[in-house]
């Protein structure tokens, strides 16, 4: 099955107000078995291997095993996501290939939760019928672009 849960690691998100994997799966696949208090993927055939559940699980209990109908066994891709970056480990089927490790940033300059939606640039007019969107026209320019746009263009 594409995403799978390691029983020893899953604590059913007991300490949280919601089951993290169930909350996040875009296809509503992760469910908590109320008897065992362990989560599972209820329809692996509809899994996109998007890793949303993997990334959010507080105990790293979820991993992905490539689709059995076309992926040879033995490889793995694991993710460890923090608030600023994500670490990947790619393990090949051929164990002579050194596992590849990558670290990529996931945000820059804005703390998690703090994305301020408005007011980064002034909005040119208040007219609901004008083509000016919030933060335009100033927001159309960059600090270094040579052409300054001072109104929303037409062709």
């Amino acid at each position: 099955m594409p995403s799978f849960v390691i029983p020893d690691k899953c604590d059913g998100c007991k300490a949280l107000d919601k089951t993290a994997c169930q909350h996040i799966c875009p296809n509503d696949l992760m469910v908590l078995d109320n008897d065992t208090m362990k989560a599972y993927n209820q329809d692996p055939q509809m899994c996109w291997e998007c890793y949303s559940c993997v990334k959010i699980c507080p105990t790293q209990a979820i991993e992905v095993r490539g689709y059995a109908d076309f992926v040879p066994l033995g490889a793995s891709v694991t993710a460890l996501r923090s608030t600023e970056d994500i670490m990947w480990t790619v393990q090949f089927r051929d164990k002579n290939v050194k596992p590849k490790r990558f670290k990529f940033p996931i945000r820059r300059g804005v703390e998690e939760g703090k994305a301020q939606p408005f007011d980064h640039y002034p909005t040119g007019d208040e007219d609901l019928k004008s083509p000016t969107l919030m933060c335009e026209p100033d927001g159309l320019n960059t600090e270094i672009g040579p052409v300054t746009i001072d109104k929303v263009l037409t062709l």
Partner: peptide, 9 residues
């Protein structure tokens, strides 16, 4: 990510 798994596999 599946493509990374497939390449590795």
């Amino acid at each position: 990510i599946s493509q990374a798994i497939l390449w590795a596999a």
